[in-house]
Design a binder for these strands. Structure first.
Length: 694
DNA sequence: AGCACGCCGACT
DNA sequence: GTCGGCGTGCTC
């Protein structure tokens, strides 16, 4: 007799194990098969996935009723390699088998009625792709692009591509970390690798942080390989289109999938290559359950599929660089800019000195002068500030009262456009009171800069120039973001003020000056990743200055000019930054030396929640030992994100990377115990290395 | 005794 | 999650 271990489709937290069924003599049944099975006393049949096959019945099941698999659904079945990744995801993400399997399962809904088969591709691929490209900022579009041959590569590019290609030729499953300064031609290396995969009859997954900001990369893949064999997965696809694309990819008529985070689960059978562009980007971390990191999934999937992974960035994450230097990844470096444009000249301006010298304006003297020069030369200027709104907090100058969100306990940002104080965490807003609610004094004051205010100050300082602003608020209506970028690209705007939205991926030809209005905002966020983010953001936004043969200039305004992140960004010194940062990470027990595990306890009742969090803390110490005490932080109440949400408490555990399995065993057991205890009144969630510690 | 209701736990 | 089993307690 032959048996299959099946993971059943269910929403319940209680059911996260294998159920053994007789296979009967179903043709095509294998690990990964989607199957239809009877379950419990239910009338309706359930679906599930085969995780293992065996000939002998497990001894503990002797005497139990063993039922039979009713059918196999071949067209929605997964690969054995996907199942292997699911087993890993369950441990790493503290999710259930079925949650991991659902990531690999067809996205979207099966169309109700089968439509007549469309000729080549269908709207899901080429048509929708054209939509994305025509909507793009620069408007360039490729209707039926003809394959473009590869341009000659530089020596560095050839070397990097050569090492990837030879690993692929030899069938070695390796991970490459490709560090290349902005403009060094990483995309050509990706294309060379994809060409090799194609030559070997294997498929490629290309991940980008956000599809709408990466149309240029997409266009180059389409130009090189043609649209018919490429599927672009993007948010504009409908549920039906999504399903059709999944089937099309699985059916083998696609060689290359390009998409955001979730495309890492694309249902390829002969996967040969995974590319992650801008691998340091936070968008690779899922914000929904299961909270996977697409970089980790890609590395795991490459190993399971015997494929090669290429992680590319100008500023690789500290974790990835560390792994490379531990020998887990091969490091490839591109130091020269493709078109020999020199790196921009970066000046750090000490804003304390400006203030001491009587300059209270938004612009340092140096930035102001550089802007005047740029305009004289008919050039454009980008001004970057990573905070939207008018001012970062509203405070009483008499007693120090600060307006805070009642639910989230974070300070409210004043937005002048709608004259309200807004919580950037939950979105709630309030009018600013006439008098201080604390001491009764009249006249609350606005402190700290936001893009709204920078825009207004810029208009005041340069009244003869046109100024536009691009941030979450100015791009809320559909198409407005694209219009802002089009106007700037076409030269109809002289100055573009914006948040990190303007730092990424966009290529402008005529920008001579980039001003970072205040680098301190990102630097002062109380999160261990803030120096890393600051270094990456400055490096990225600096990459927008100067194109072609002209050298751009960048002015970084800060009150902390001696900070190592600022200093390293100034001298384009990735190595120096890496060394300093690694030292702090080791001293303070942060990644890559540990995993920061966020444990969220939630309940309808605050006292139950607080009690549950305390109980969880004690259970962790009991299970993992008192030695963990200094690595276990909290519990403390979490900011509440949305109306009607449960009360939430956070615990953080800095878990030694070397003992990962020990933590996985202990915490998954704890989670299961609590979440299946119907009397507990609270539940827990676990997020490994969360995007933010808020 | 007969039945409604709610909680518990198994589901292969 | 879902359903049946079973214990409790009310009603006839």
């Amino acid at each position: 007799m032959s048996y299959a271990d099946v993971v059943i489709e269910t929403r319940s937290d209680n059911v996260d194990n294998f159920f053994t069924y007789e296979t009967g003599d179903l043709p095509g049944l294998r690990v990964g098969s989607k199957v239809i099975v009877p379950f419990a006393q239910e009338r309706a049949k359930r679906s599930g996935y085969v995780f293992a096959l065996h000939e002998e019945l497990q001894p503990e099941l002797e005497g139990k009723r063993i039922r039979r698999i009713e059918a196999v659904c071949e067209e929605e079945s997964l690969t054995a390699e996907a199942i292997e990744v699911c087993r890993w995801m369950r441990r790493r993400c503290y999710c259930r088998y079925i949650d991991a399997a659902r990531c690999f399962a067809p996205a979207g809904k099966k169309p109700k009625r089968e439509e007549a088969p469309e000729s080549s591709g269908g709207k899901g691929s080429v048509g929708a792709l054209a939509d994305v490209l025509t909507d793009s900022a620069n408007g360039a579009l490729a209707a039926a692009p003809l394959p473009v041959p590869a341009p000659p590569l530089t020596l560095e590019q050839r070397r990097a591509a050569g090492r990837i290609v030879s690993a692929m030729e030899a069938g070695r499953s390796e991970v490459f970390l490709l560090r290349g300064v902005t403009g060094s031609g990483k995309t050509e290396v990706y294309l060379a690798a994809a060409e090799q995969a194609l030559k070997q009859g294997r498929r490629t997954i290309m991940l980008v942080p956000e599809i709408s900001l990466t149309h240029q990369t997409v266009e180059r893949f389409v130009a090189r390989f043609g649209a018919e064999r490429i599927a672009v997965l993007h948010s504009a696809l409908t549920q039906n289109e999504r399903y059709r694309e999944w089937i099309r990819i699985r059916g083998g008529s696609v060689d290359i999938v390009i998409g955001a985070r979730s495309a890492v689960f694309a249902p390829f059978e002969k996967l040969g290559l995974l590319i992650l562009d801008e691998e340091h980007e936070g968008t690779y971390k899922s914000d929904m359950s299961p909270k996977y990191d697409a970089v980790e999934v890609a590395v795991k999937r490459a190993k399971a599929a015997g494929a090669v992974a290429v992680l590319g960035s100008a500023t690789p994450s500290i974790v990835s660089s560390y792994r490379a230097r531990q020998g887990l990844y091969r490091e490839l470096v591109l130091t020269k800019r493709y078109n020999t444009t020199p790196l921009p000249n970066l000046t750090v301006v000490d804003m304390r000195k400006e203030l001491a010298g009587g300059n209270k304006s938004v612009f340092s003297e140096a930035l102001y002068a550089a802007m005047l020069d740029a305009f004289a030369a008919r050039k454009q200027v980008l001004l970057f500030l990573n905070r939207r709104g008018w001012s970062s907090f509203v405070s009483c100058p008499h007693c120090g009262y600060v307006m805070r969100c009642e639910r989230c306990n974070i300070s409210l940002t004043y937005h002048k456009s709608d004259n309200r104080a807004v919580c950037h965490f939950c979105g709630e807003s309030r009018a600013v009171p006439e008098a201080c609610p604390s001491c009764g004094a009249e006249g609350l004051r606005y402190y700290g800069l936001g893009t709204e205010q920078v825009e207004e100050r810029t208009k005041e300082a340069f009244p003869e120039r046109t100024v536009a602003r691009m941030d979450l608020d100015s791009t809320k209506t559909k198409g407005s973001g694209k219009k802002i970028l089009r106007d700037f690209s076409a030269g109809r705007t002289d100055i573009l003020v914006g948040t990190q939205m303007i730092a990424k991926g966009l290529d402008f030809d005529n920008v001579a000056v980039v001003g970072v209005i205040s680098a301190d905002i990102t630097l002062n966020i109380p999160d261990f990743k803030s120096p890393e983010r600051t270094f990456q953001l400055i490096t990225q936004v600096a990459g927008r200055a100067g194109r072609r043969e002209e050298r751009g200039s960048v002015y970084v305004q800060t009150c902390l000019p001696e900070h190592y992140a600022i200093e390293a960004a100034r001298s384009h010194d990735y190595e120096g930054f890496y060394r300093s940062e690694l030292y702090f990470r080791e001293t303070l027990a942060y990644p890559p030396y540990t995993d920061v595990i966020q444990i969220t306890v939630f309940s309808e009742r605050e006292d139950v929640c607080a009690g549950g969090a305390e109980a969880a803390r004690r259970a962790i110490l009991a299970r993992l030992g008192e030695a963990e005490r200094p690595r276990l932080l909290g519990p403390r109440p979490a900011p509440i994100a949305k109306a009607g949400a449960d009360y939430r408490y956070h615990l953080y555990l800095k878990a030694e990377a070397a003992r990962r399995r020990v933590y996985e065993a202990a915490l998954s057991e704890l989670k299961r115990k609590i979440n299946t205890d119907s009397a507990a009144g609270y539940r827990i969630m676990i997020d490994v290395n969360p995007f933010s510690l808020m």
